[in-house]
């Protein structure tokens, strides 16, 4: 029971999971293609927040050995999730750019952005 009462647990993980759920909800229920792409982007940021949060150490500092910080190796946060998220952000940008260009292409062809008006995309 104790684990549900820790305020930082609830705040950090809760907001990350909430972002992921908001993104999924948007991608699943919205009719506009732009909003679906936006939902996927929000889902992305939720996952990034989650990965960064898992690497955090209590009272940790940034993993940078700047002048005066050379001996603080034991209190540094984990740098590996941060490097992974740096990669993931760039890939997410590429995916969003291609998705937006496909949306533009669909709009050019059908003159609408609503998926229920484009035939064969109903569900």
């Amino acid at each position: 029971m104790e684990k549900y009462l820790d305020i930082l647990n609830v705040a950090i993980y809760g907001s990350a999971v909430l972002l992921m759920l908001i993104g999924l909800y948007g991608a699943l229920t919205k009719k506009s293609l732009i909003k679906i792409v936006l939902g996927l982007s929000i889902l992305d940021s939720g996952v990034h927040l989650l990965m960064i949060a898992i690497g955090y150490l209590k009272d940790g500092t940034a993993p940078i050995f700047s002048a005066g910080n050379e001996e603080k190796m034991s209190v540094m946060v984990d740098p590996i999730p941060q490097a992974l998220v740096l990669t993931a952000i760039v890939i997410g940008f590429g995916v969003t750019a291609v998705a937006i260009s496909l949306v533009i292409r669909l709009y050019r062809h059908h003159n609408t952005l609503r998926i229920d008006e484009i035939k064969k995309l109903k569900w």
Partner: peptide
């Protein structure tokens, strides 16, 4: 989905060392 995700991550806990110290310390040093 949200309930089970939250359950998993509450079990992990925030701000504690989860991964083995080895990899992190190897990269840092």
């Amino acid at each position: 989905l949200g309930f089970y995700l939250m359950d998993i991550f509450f079990g992990i806990g925030f701000g504690v060392q989860h991964f083995s110290n080895g990899v992190k310390d190897l990269y840092l040093s």
